[in-house]
Each structure stands twice: as C-alpha cells, then as structure tokens.
Amino acid sequence: MLNDLFSEYGLLAVALAVLLEQLGAPVPSTPVLLLAGVESAMRDGFALQSFAVATLAALAANGVWFWAGQRLGRRVLATLCRISISPDSCVRQNEASFARRGVLTLVIAKFVPGLSILAPPLAGALGMPASRFIAWNLLGSALWAGVAIGVGRLFHEQIDDLLHALSHLGGVALALAGVALGLYLAWRLWRRARVRRELERFERLGPAEALALAQQRSDIVFVDVRACSPTMPLQNRIPGARHLDMGALGDAALAGWPPAAVFITYCACPGDASAVRAAIWLKQRGHQAQVLRGGIDAWTQAGLALEPG
C-alpha cells in the first residue's frame, strides 16, 4: 500500500517532507528520502529527480530562515530556541559550531540534530553574504539528500522487506510507533522542564544591580560566555569583561584570572542558560559567581556602556 502511494506521489512527498522539516515542523524527512532511494531502484531517473527536489526544497526553506536572521538578528534564534525541545544549549551550541567550523557548519548542519534549523538564521544574523550562504548551504543540502537517497537505494531490499512486514502488522505497527514517539517526546519534555527549573533557581542580578555592585567593589569581574572566534568576533561587550570559552572549560581556562574575584557571567541566550552553566562551573571550582539577568541584551536595553569586543 505504502509503496503504491509512493510510486504515484513520491516526488510530492519528498518535497513536502523536506520543506516542512527544514521550516521547523516536527516532521522527519529522512525516512521519506530513504523511501525515495528504494523507489529509485525500481524506476530509472527517480534518484536524480528526488535528489533535485529534496535539495531545492531544503534550499528554499533554509533561505527563508537566512532572510529572517538577516532581518531580525538574534531575536529569531531566541524564538526558535524557546520553542525547541532542548532550549538550554540551543544558541550556544550553534554559535560554538560556527566559531569552530565557520561556513563548514552549513555543510554538516543537516546531519546534526538541532543544528539544521538554527544554522541558516544564525548565518544571516552573523552577516554572511547571501551568495556565500547559498553556495555552502546548497553543498550541504545536496550532500545530505544524496546520502539519504543513496542509503535507501543501497539497502532497498532490506527496507522493502521491512515495509512488507509492517504492512502485515497493520494497526499494531502504527500503535507501537506512536507509543515509542510519545515516550521519546515525554522524556524530552520532562528533561526540558527539569533543566528550566534548575536555571530558574540560580541567583541573578539585574543590569542596574550588577553595575552598582561593580562600582562599589573592585573585585567584580564580568565574564562573557558567548561563542566567538577570529572569523566570528564579538561586536561589543561589557567594559572590562573577560571571555570564557564554554567549549574548552578546564583549569587552563582561568589562568591569570584573579582567584578572589566575584564573577558575574552573561550570555545572549534564552533563560541565561549558558551564563548559568558557566556560573555553576565556576562555583564548583570554589569561586563566587552570579548571573546577569537578561544577559548582554538586557544590559544594552538599559542603556549601559559597552566597549568593542
């Protein structure tokens, strides 16, 4: 039954599945691409057709997010991460990937859960030229679609046997798949709620409170935990802030830092997630640490001074 439907509407299914997934809908497109690979073993030219449709659909959806990133900047990233199942490390991990790999992030994005939807708007927010984005994103989309369709074609006999077995199970197979998906989503949502509770419990200072404390005491050190690199420098920071690389935490990361200082960490992420992680890490090493509520965005909105990053 499924094979018959795919034979008739296969290209439409590929286009819709890829487009919806890349726009952010919880619709996995890889199984559809695998089915396209299976179908290509029985129809001449279908592999190339489905490859072209999948690549162009991905490029179109990613282009929408790239444009949104150009127009709205990091606000679109914060919005995406708030609706993400795992918002606690959403922006930080994607920024860190761009800091380490640059444009190669667009090539590997679709192979990394969570990175696929965030990479295009992040590229736009970071000011990547549209021509460069299109070239690298096209390469990544083509590689991803080609691998998925190729795997489907390579193992078309085994996948076809599995589909026939599932068709004999009928409603039981659908019920089992639904239960497995429900359990997975329940676990991720429970983890999200637990992480959010942990983040909300951590002590925070508002921008005005943090500034007043820094003016009263000489041992206050602001710590910027946003991802950066020579190709992705920070545009501005709180005056005198030190940078802490969350991807390379270790004793060497604090070399030369004042041991008796009171650290105030900040980031540019939903829920101050990265800043809280950094503060917890500092406290575990015997330092005093607090978090700037709202991060660099709240500091900027309060009209407080900044310096070049």
Rank of each mutant, 00 (worst) to 15 (best):
residue 1 M to D: 10
residue 3 N to S: 14
residue 4 D to R: 13
residue 6 F to D: 03
residue 13 A to F: 09
residue 20 L to E: 07
residue 21 E to F: 08
residue 26 P to L: 07
residue 27 V to K: 09
residue 29 S to R: 07
residue 30 T to H: 08
residue 31 P to T: 04
residue 35 L to P: 00
residue 37 G to Y: 02
residue 37 G to F: 03
residue 37 G to W: 00
residue 41 A to W: 05
residue 43 R to I: 06
residue 45 G to P: 05
residue 45 G to D: 02
residue 46 F to Y: 08
residue 46 F to N: 04
residue 49 Q to R: 09
residue 50 S to C: 06
residue 56 L to M: 06
residue 57 A to S: 07
residue 62 N to G: 15
residue 74 R to F: 05
residue 75 R to K: 12
residue 75 R to M: 14
residue 75 R to N: 11
residue 76 V to C: 12
residue 77 L to A: 07
residue 78 A to Y: 03
residue 83 I to W: 14
residue 94 N to H: 11
residue 101 R to H: 12
residue 106 L to N: 03
residue 107 V to K: 03
residue 110 K to A: 07
residue 111 F to Y: 05
residue 118 L to R: 00
residue 119 A to M: 09
residue 120 P to R: 01
residue 122 L to V: 00
residue 131 S to T: 09
residue 135 A to K: 11
residue 151 V to M: 05
residue 152 G to H: 10
residue 155 F to H: 08
residue 157 E to T: 12
residue 157 E to W: 05
residue 158 Q to F: 14
residue 164 H to R: 09
residue 165 A to M: 05
residue 168 H to D: 03
residue 168 H to N: 14
residue 169 L to K: 06
residue 175 A to Q: 13
residue 175 A to T: 14
residue 177 A to E: 12
residue 178 G to D: 15
residue 181 L to S: 08
residue 185 L to D: 07
residue 188 R to W: 14
residue 188 R to T: 09
residue 189 L to T: 12
residue 191 R to H: 13
residue 195 V to T: 15
residue 195 V to M: 13
residue 197 R to G: 14
residue 198 E to C: 12
residue 202 F to I: 02
residue 214 A to S: 09
residue 221 V to M: 12
residue 224 D to M: 03
residue 225 V to F: 03
residue 225 V to A: 03
residue 227 A to V: 07
residue 232 M to A: 04
residue 237 R to A: 08
residue 237 R to N: 09
residue 238 I to P: 00
residue 241 A to D: 01
residue 245 D to P: 07
residue 245 D to G: 03
residue 247 G to R: 06
residue 250 G to Q: 04
residue 253 A to E: 01
residue 253 A to N: 01
residue 254 L to W: 06
residue 260 A to C: 05
residue 261 A to F: 06
residue 261 A to L: 01
residue 263 F to L: 05
residue 271 G to I: 09
residue 271 G to L: 06
residue 275 A to C: 04
residue 275 A to R: 10
residue 280 I to K: 09
residue 282 L to E: 07
residue 288 Q to M: 11
residue 290 Q to H: 15
residue 291 V to Q: 10
residue 291 V to G: 01
residue 295 G to D: 01
residue 300 T to N: 14
